[in-house]
Write a protein that binds this DNA or RNA. Structure first.
Length: 399
DNA sequence: TAGTATT
């Protein structure tokens, strides 16, 4: 079906509304396609704006790369399409350097000049903010690893450039895994959120990832929205992972609480998000279709969530909750998984203290299952949550 | 001082 020496290509800078069927015509003019896959997020299914492409014949891949790479820009994109061998094809990124502690004045050309004596540079880019000012760092990619190593040996720490606060940093760029961790930390800090990971509360897992992606989407909606009065602190008030780490006093939502206002504002932003995000990014399905409904309920009836049970299979039992978790915190913890119709932490009548277990009800069994899958075993502090379906009323075994 | 993305 395909040649033994076929090349897998990475395709970048493709609009998020283009699926395989839309991309096929663009690429099949260079040869018979063996496989074409749009890359989607493992958890949310969100189109990541890139794809992998393998032609049956090696020659087709080379032709496509020649004809398309950096040659044209797809509608809605502001950078040209990328068509090049996937990282999996060659050796890893062992020839790419991160350069830190540059002066703000230095251009790509200045950096290139400094690095070119160590080998042939394939790419050299100073990172810049939206206003074009240098971030004081750059990526430099050589054709091979020894060249990169030579540059590190000679340049790292060798001088302090004007305007830099410390001596020049030259090291291999982060691996993909390290980049992932860095991104998580960035999002968390931008949102003023103390993430579970930052707190070492638990391992990075599906739930953490879902949360951080939601944070990113909400932040984006605030940005897109004309009602962009919401602040990062206000966003944090919506987020369960911040609740985990924050003293309860400031967080229990009530009609009188100042927390209500940000929720209303966020909801205004979310409405805009609902309308704008799919149009702007060609998103086919909402990653969290229920969240808007939930916020709408809060909007109309803050804290008035009635205690009611969903149909069988929709109700979950949660044990080993943190002592300080109230209905509100637990509710927010489970919002990502669906339309929550009830969230109740059981409280000792005598002491008014949480008994560290509770029930959450969704309006459908699938949400309940998703919540169980993601949250059972989720580590908070020294404990792990136990999350399972609530037993039907007639069952009476002890827990 | 970490980009626009690598199943």
């Amino acid at each position: 079906m395909k040649e033994a020496d076929a090349i897998k290509l990475f395709i970048g800078q493709i609009p998020r509304n283009l699926e395989e069927k839309d991309l096929k015509p663009i690429f099949e003019q260079f040869g018979k396609i063996y496989e074409l896959t749009v890359i989607k997020d493992k958890y949310t299914g969100m189109h990541k704006g890139c794809a992998f492409l393998t032609y049956c014949e090696r020659e087709s891949a080379l032709k496509a790369q020649n004809a398309l790479h950096e040659q044209k820009t797809l509608p809605g994109m502001n950078r040209p399409i990328q068509v090049k061998p996937a990282d999996s094809e060659g050796r890893g990124e062992d020839r790419k350097l991160f350069v830190g502690m540059l002066g703000k004045q230095q251009s790509d050309a200045d950096v290139r000049k400094m690095f070119e004596e160590f080998g042939s540079i394939e790419e050299c880019t100073v990172l810049r903010g939206p206003d074009g000012t240098s971030k004081g760092c750059a990526f430099v990619k050589y054709q091979n690893n020894p060249e990169a190593a030579a540059a590190i040996n000679t340049l790292h720490g060798s001088r302090t450039l004007p305007g830099a606060s410390s001596s020049l940093v030259v090291k291999f760029a982060d691996s993909e895994k390290e980049r992932g961790i860095r991104r998580m930390q960035q999002v968390a800090s931008q949102l003023g959120v103390i993430s579970p990971m930052t707190l070492h509360l638990g391992a990075y897992n599906a739930y953490t990832q879902v949360l951080v992606q939601q944070q990113a989407l909400v932040a984006q909606s605030a940005y897109l929205s004309p009602v962009s009065t919401i602040t990062m602190q206000q966003l944090a008030a919506l987020n369960p992972s911040s609740l985990i780490a924050t003293p309860i006093a400031s967080l229990t939502t009530s009609a009188q609480s100042p927390v209500l206002d940000p929720i209303q504002q966020a909801y205004a932003g979310m409405q805009h998000y609902t309308a704008t995000y799919p149009a702007a990014y060609g998103m086919v399905g909402q990653p969290f279709p229920h969240q808007h409904t939930m916020l709408a309920q809060q909007h109309q009836q803050p804290q008035q969530l009635q205690q009611r049970e969903g149909p069988e299979g929709c109700n979950i039992f949660i044990y080993h909750l943190p002592q300080e978790f109230t209905d509100s915190e637990m509710l927010q913890m489970f919002i990502p998984f669906g339309n929550v119709i009830s969230a109740k932490v059981f409280v000792d009548r005598a002491t008014n203290q949480s008994k560290c277990f509770g029930f959450v009800s969704f309006d459908n069994p699938s949400s309940a299952q998703t919540a169980i899958q993601a949250m059972n075993g989720f580590q908070i502090g020294m404990k792990r949550l136990k999350v399972q379906l609530k037993r039907p009323k007639d069952a009476n075994r002890p827990y």
